[in-house]
Computed example of a mutant assay.
Amino acid sequence: GEPLYTEQDLAVNGREGFPNYSHPALTVTPDGDLLASYDGRPTGIAAPGPNSILQRRSTDGGRTWGEQQVVSAGQTTAPIKGFSHPSYLVDRETGTIFNFHVYSQRQGWEGSRPGTDPADPNVLHANVATSTDGGLTWSHRTITADITPDPGWRSRFAASGEGIQLRYGPHAGRLIQQYAIINAAGAIQAVSVYSDDHGRTWRAGEAVGVGMSHNKTVELSDGRVLLNSADSARSGYRKVAVSTDGGHSYGPVTIDRDLPDPTNDASIIRAFPDAPAGSARAKVLLFSNAASQTSRSQGTIRMSCDDGQTWPVSKVFQPGSMSYSTLTALPDGTYGLLYEPGTGIRYANFNLAWLGGICAPGS
Rank of each mutant, 00 (worst) to 15 (best):
G211Y: 03
S314H: 06
P30E: 14
L34G: 04
D120P: 01
I97T: 07
G247W: 12
F100T: 01
V12A: 07
L286C: 08
G299P: 04
L4N: 02
W153M: 13
Q105W: 14
G199W: 13
N215G: 02
D196Q: 12
F287V: 12
T132G: 15
Y347L: 09
L136C: 06
G236S: 04
A78W: 14
T132S: 08
V208D: 01
R238S: 03
D197Q: 10
H101R: 01
D231I: 04
V218C: 12
E2G: 10
V284Y: 01
G344V: 00
P331L: 05
G169S: 05
F287L: 11
Y168L: 14
P361L: 06
Q107S: 15
I80E: 08
L54S: 02
E162M: 12
V253E: 04
T116A: 14
Q298M: 08
S279T: 15
H23L: 05
S160K: 12
S235Y: 06
T300C: 03
G278N: 04
V123K: 05
W354F: 09
L226F: 06
R15T: 15
S104L: 10
Q298P: 01
A233V: 03
D39W: 08
A230T: 10
G199F: 10
Q293P: 06
A348Y: 02
S155N: 08
L259C: 03
E206Q: 13
H125Q: 09
R200E: 13
D60W: 06
D146N: 05
N127R: 14
P50N: 07
Y38P: 10
L226V: 02
S22A: 13
G199C: 06
G44L: 06
A36H: 07
I164H: 10
D150G: 04
Y21G: 12
I80A: 01
I358Q: 11
T263D: 15
D222R: 14
E2F: 15
G336K: 02
G320M: 10
R156H: 08
L54R: 11
Y88G: 06
L227R: 12
I358V: 01
A185H: 15
G14Q: 09
T148D: 05
E7I: 04
T27Y: 00
D231V: 01
G247P: 12
E2V: 02
S235F: 09
T144L: 08
S22M: 08
Q8E: 11
N127C: 09
Y168G: 11
N183K: 07
C305M: 06
S288L: 00
R156Y: 02
S295K: 10
L338W: 04
D196Y: 09
G333F: 14
R296N: 07
I269C: 07
R281C: 04
A78M: 13
V71L: 08
G251R: 09
R238M: 12
G333V: 06
I255W: 00
Q318H: 07
L10I: 00
I182S: 01
T27A: 14
V70L: 09
S292D: 14
E110D: 11
P149K: 01
